[in-house]
Computed example of a mutant assay.
Amino acid sequence: MVKMESTESWTAYNYTGLDDEEEGLCNLDPNPMEVTIQTYIHGIICAFGLIGNLLVIITYVFYKRTKTMTDVYLYNVAVADLIFVVALPFIIYNEQHSWLMGLAVCKMLRSAYSINLYSGMLLLACISGDRYFAIVQARRFFAARSRTLIYSRLICSGLWVIAVTLTVPTLIYTERYEEHNLWSVSVTVTCQMTFRTSEKAKLMKVLVPSLQMAVGFLLPLVVMVFCYSSIVYTLLRAQSTKRHKAVRVVLAVVVVFIVCQLPYNVVLLFHTLSLFKERDCEEEQFRLRVLAISRSIAYLHCCLNPILYAFIGVKFRNHFWQIMFDLWCLSKKYIYSARSSRATTEICISGSKPSEGSNHLSSFTA
């Protein structure tokens, strides 16, 4: 049985730079300090990602409703990111401990990241495309806006089907892998992609990362760069203070996407290209360390999406404050006496008028 990832401890591979008595053995386990730091970072990402994306979903379900194509896309992005942040603690546990849960949960958790990667990145590309038509091709966009919700739901359904289809190899080949430690009698069980033959392992070790880089990074990057560069050009020609603020928001969206996703995909590319070459042990340890760091930076994108795409809009922020106001009212209702509750309810009713008014560029303005 061949493992998908080279994160195993003391495994025989083609490594050089070792002593004669340890030839072919390389300890690729991260040191305890790195594990502790990584756990804290992932915990913060999980907490903020959970809160931010839940607030986006609550806002769309109970307050804002989905009225435009961008609303539909943002709701689906929040769902995709929420799936990932819920699975992230279990993924972290799998990397640091022996896997105790069954095979079905193992497959679901390993597939969660892949589904989030494909669906989330493709949805971000769709958002950039929608903003392109709304700003650069404004006349055509508003002429057909009566059909946009139907189109956006069909597009989102298609993207989820694509994401699940591209995740099929991960779902099929993920298994509970029993690793016998060479220096003790203990057995470590991990949840990861494993293969029965080396030929299939070589194919999947190249195919899966290649799909992730092509569909989950390069394609969305090309679409976003084209759309947002056209948007910036159009906004700069407008000579408006408000639209200059929108330009800064557009640049922030692109810069954050590149900063979060580019390092991981570059490192993943070099790691994939070196899989079937003879590698120095220290070099491989360093490469895996950099891969882990860049992967954590890529995870960060799931808790930045609500800020960049939702809460930066004026109308969305108003709905967010309405949520906070309603939660405050509920807390007052259960803390104070019946008389105080009636007074609080009157205040809540009088103060619960959502503000309206914003144009199609509101998601670009602070």
Rank of each mutant, 00 (worst) to 15 (best):
L124D: 04
G49P: 01
T170Q: 12
A134R: 05
E278F: 07
A214G: 15
T11L: 09
R65L: 05
T190L: 06
E178V: 11
R279K: 13
T345D: 03
L18A: 11
V225I: 10
S184N: 15
P32S: 14
F286T: 14
I58H: 10
Y228K: 00
R342D: 06
D81S: 14
C191G: 07
H271R: 04
N116M: 11
A163I: 04
Y334N: 11
N76E: 10
Q239M: 09
I115A: 08
L207R: 08
Y177E: 07
C260H: 00
S152D: 03
A343W: 08
T68N: 13
V85F: 02
M213H: 12
S157K: 11
T16G: 14
S355R: 14
Y15W: 09
T190G: 02
L103S: 12
C46V: 00
V225N: 03
I44P: 00
I41Q: 02
T190I: 02
L117S: 02
E95Q: 15
Y173E: 02
V254R: 06
V187L: 03
P89T: 01
W183K: 08
V290G: 01
K242D: 10
C156D: 00
S294V: 10
K107H: 10
M4S: 06
S184I: 06
Y173A: 04
E95C: 13
S210E: 06
S184V: 03
S296R: 06
E23F: 10
V168P: 01
Y13G: 10
L361H: 08
I51Y: 05
L251N: 13
C126R: 12
Q96N: 11
Y334L: 05
M213Y: 12
N27S: 12
T16I: 15
L50A: 09
I44D: 01
T70F: 09
L117M: 14
R237M: 07
H244K: 10
T194E: 15
Q38H: 14
L25C: 05
V189W: 10
S340C: 05
W10M: 12
L300T: 15
T345P: 01
S119F: 11
E283D: 14
D19K: 14
G52V: 00
R279A: 13
A134L: 02
V105C: 09
C281I: 03
C26W: 07
I58K: 11
C348R: 01
C106A: 13
L269I: 08
K107F: 08
I51G: 01
I347S: 06
V255R: 01
S296P: 03
L235K: 01
K333G: 13
I83T: 04
N265M: 11
Q96E: 09
L54N: 01
V164F: 15
G216R: 02
S337P: 06
R65T: 15
E21K: 13
A298I: 02
D326F: 00
R289S: 12
L235C: 06
G129E: 02
E179K: 10
V164Q: 04
S229H: 04
L28H: 00
Y177W: 12
M324Y: 01
P89S: 07
V35W: 03
M69F: 03
K67L: 10
S186T: 14
H301C: 02
N305V: 09
L109I: 13
